[in-house]
Simulated scan of single mutants.
Amino acid sequence: MKQNFTVRQGALDGVEVFLSVAHHRSFRRAAVELGVSPSAISQAIRVLETRIGAALFMRTTRSVGLTEAGERFFSRAKPAFEELVAASEVARGLGQRPAGLLRLSVPRSVVPILLDSLIASFCQAYPEVEVEIAANEKLIDLAAEGFDAGIRMGQFIAPDMVAVRLTPPFRFVTVGSPDYLARRGRPKRPEDLGQHACLRMRRSNGALALWSFNDNDRAIEVAVSGPLIANDFPSMLGAAIEGMGLAQVPEPIAAAPMKAGKLIQVLESFAPMAPGMFLYYPSRRNIMPKLRAFIDHVKARSNANNKAQVRTTAKRSKPRKRS
């Protein structure tokens, strides 16, 4: 089948010209308003009338009036065209400054430890942007689902995505409550997990996640079993705190319960490293200002946090003066 490389005339062709002539009741004044010649105006109206199949104007040497068809067309076309112009202005505004709805898909566990302060500071800096957070573990097609960007661990981000680092790499830790460990003992090696109740994660593709470990720089995976299957880390963490079994979770979300003594880490020397959390989005081209502002805000916060960590480390390592 032969392809047609020309764009067919659309229903809106000539409408702006028609509305200008109808408003001024003059082809010449419409030409001045639109910055074209009167003959171009006449030609556009003739094409529009041919396409519609009805005369829209009554023309004499002294005046221009609307036919009944022209009156009806004008009454419907004018508000519709004004709405299109307004829609264009709204879209143009969103393309020129950070404004509108910014939709982010994020894991539920990320919200309290990573996003709370970040989103608060971003909303203060950009009051014309509304932020919507869809908290779930499912890996989705951002464009198809209408999201501007997502946040995930680096190993789960497709290679064709653009990724911006949010956190340094972190460990996956295996933890259990003091009560559970008192009852069941501490595993010494990953293979000991066959004798333990392990809380498991079901991935968005339906598969049960294996537990990963690092044994002398050799990556190993262990299939575990236990009383609970969850689809997010907070649920697993809560069950571990209640003594239901061991859980393997990102260290940042387990840090507070471990510090409070609610959880104890086991198999420390086998803890594997994860790449960290990243903001990701589909393309570097045609980024809306609202997303560009969020990316820049993330980078600025990350740089500020890194500098603060460097200052803290330098202060700790500075030798004390002897009295």
Rank of each mutant, 00 (worst) to 15 (best):
G95Q: 08
L66Q: 07
P107E: 06
S121A: 09
P112D: 01
L34R: 00
P250I: 11
G95R: 14
P159M: 12
D215C: 14
N216S: 14
N305K: 12
R311C: 04
G53P: 05
R59S: 10
F270S: 00
A87L: 13
R200N: 07
R25Q: 09
V90G: 05
V175M: 08
G65F: 06
K78Y: 09
F278Q: 01
M58T: 15
L267S: 02
S212R: 08
S37M: 08
R183H: 08
E49M: 02
A40L: 12
V266D: 02
L208V: 07
Q9H: 11
P272Y: 02
M236P: 03
R8H: 15
C198Y: 01
T67M: 01
I229T: 07
S117I: 10
K2T: 14
E132T: 10
P79M: 06
L19M: 06
R28S: 10
I220H: 00
Q3L: 14
G243N: 06
D116G: 07
P178T: 14
M258Q: 10
I151Q: 01
Q195I: 12
K315M: 12
A149L: 01
S177N: 07
V110T: 14
L102Y: 06
N286A: 07
L34Q: 08
R103Q: 10
A69L: 04
G53C: 05
F170T: 03
T61G: 15
E268Q: 09
M161P: 00
G206R: 02
L246E: 00
G154H: 01
K307Y: 08
S269I: 14
L237V: 03
L142D: 03
V173H: 04
L66F: 05
E132M: 09
L291P: 03
V164F: 02
P272M: 03
C123T: 10
E221M: 06
T174Q: 06
A120L: 15
I133F: 04
I264P: 04
L210W: 03
P178Q: 10
Y281W: 05
E251Q: 04
D217H: 09
E145G: 12
T6R: 13
A254C: 03
Q155I: 10
S109G: 14
Y126I: 11
R186A: 02
Y281F: 07
A260S: 13
V222K: 05
K259W: 13
V129W: 03
R284W: 11
S105N: 10
I45G: 00
L115I: 04
A91P: 03
E221L: 06
